[in-house]
C-alpha cells in the first residue's frame, strides 16, 4: 500500500512539475523561438498604441527625402499578430494616403481619388523602407526560429560600434503573413534587445540590413527609437526610421476595415 501511495505521489509530482518545466525559460539557454518572442516584446508594446515615424532617406550619405507617418497598431486576438493602420502625413503630395494591413487583408486609400484599392502582400515590400518595415510585427508569429552559429553567442558590433554578445537566429516563414522569405536576426544576450537583422527575398536575395539603435524609454520599456535600414541591393541607399510620440491608445477593432480608411484622422 505504501508503495502504491509513493508511486501515486511521484506521478502527481511529475505531472505538476513536468509542465512547469516545459513552460519555464532557461535564461542562459532559451529556445530560439523564446529569443524572438522576447525580442518582439522589446520592440513592441503589449497594448494598443499610436506612434509617429520619420523616415529619412540618404543617398551616398546625403539626405534626399523625408516621409512622416502616423501608425495605429493593435494585436489581433485571433492571430496574435499586429494589425496596422499607416497614415502618410508628409510629403504634401502623399498626405492623407492610408494603408491598412491586417494579415493578408491590405487596402490602400488615396484621398485624391477617395478610393480604396486592395493590394497584395508583395506591395508591402515597395520602397526602400517599405510599409512592411514601418508596421509593427511580431516575428515569432510569422517565422520559425533556429539558433545558428556559436552556442555561446556571437560578438557583434551595434550601430554605435559597441560590441554586443548576441544570439544569432535564423527565421523561416511559417505562414502567408511573413513579409520576407527568410531572415537572420541578432539579439543581445540577457537584454533580448534586437541588434541587427538581415532580410531576404523568397529567392534568397539579401534585400535589407537593419540595425536597431538609440534605445530610449518608450511606453514602459527601453525600446529602439531608430532603425537604420541599409538597402542591400543598392548599398548607397540608407534609410533611418525614427519612432516618436509612442503612446497607448484604445483602438476599436472597427477601424481595421476598408470603409474606415477615409475617416481616419490622426490625433
Amino acid at each position: 500500500m505504501k508503495k502504491q501511495i509513493l508511486i501515486f505521489l511521484l506521478m502527481v509530482t511529475f505531472s505538476v512539475i513536468a509542465p512547469l518545466k516545459a513552460f519555464s525559460v532557461d535564461e542562459n539557454n532559451p529556445t530560439a523561438q523564446t529569443v524572438i518572442a522576447r525580442s518582439d516584446a522589446v520592440r513592441n508594446p503589449d497594448k494598443p498604441f499610436q506612434m509617429n515615424i520619420r523616415l529619412t532617406e540618404y543617398v551616398d550619405g546625403s539626405e534626399r527625402n523625408q516621409i512622416i507617418l502616423g501608425v495605429y497598431s493593435k494585436v489581433d486576438a485571433a492571430s496574435g499578430q499586429f494589425k496596422n493602420l499607416v497614415r502618410y502625413m508628409e510629403p504634401p503630395r502623399d498626405s492623407g494616403k492610408t494603408v491598412l494591413m491586417n494579415g493578408t487583408t491590405m487596402w490602400f486609400y488615396d484621398p485624391a481619388s477617395k478610393t480604396s484599392v486592395r493590394i497584395s502582400p508583395q506591395q508591402r515590400l515597395l520602397g526602400q523602407a517599405s510599409e512592411g518595415d514601418v508596421v509593427t510585427v511580431n516575428l515569432a508569429k510569422d517565422y520559425s526560429a533556429k539558433l545558428v552559429g556559436n552556442a555561446d553567442g556571437e560578438t557583434l558590433y551595434d550601430a554605435d560600434r559597441t560590441p554586443k554578445k548576441c544570439w544569432h537566429v535564423d527565421l523561416s516563414p511559417i505562414n502567408d503573413g511573413a513579409i520576407y522569405g527568410r531572415a537572420e536576426y541578432w539579439v543581445e544576450k540577457g537584454t533580448y534587445r534586437p541588434v541587427k537583422g538581415k532580410f531576404y527575398s523568397d529567392s534568397g536575395r539579401l534585400l535589407k540590413i537593419t540595425y536597431y539603435h538609440k534605445y530610449v524609454e518608450q511606453l514602459g520599456a527601453q525600446r529602439p527609437s531608430e532603425i537604420i535600414i541599409i538597402d542591400a541591393v543598392n548599398s548607397k541607399l540608407v534609410t533611418t526610421m525614427n519612432t516618436y510620440g509612442l503612446r497607448a491608445k484604445e483602438i476599436p477593432n472597427s477601424w481595421y476595415q476598408r470603409d474606415f480608411l477615409p475617416r481616419l484622422e490622426l490625433e
Binding site: 529619412t56 540618404y58 539626405e63 502625413m89 530610449v216 525614427n242 510620440g245 490625433e267
Partner: peptide, 14 residues
Amino acid sequence: TLARPVESETSSDT
C-alpha cells in the same frame, strides 16, 4: 551624417 537627435521629435505633427 545621419544622426538626428531623438529629442527633436515631437508629436505636434498630429
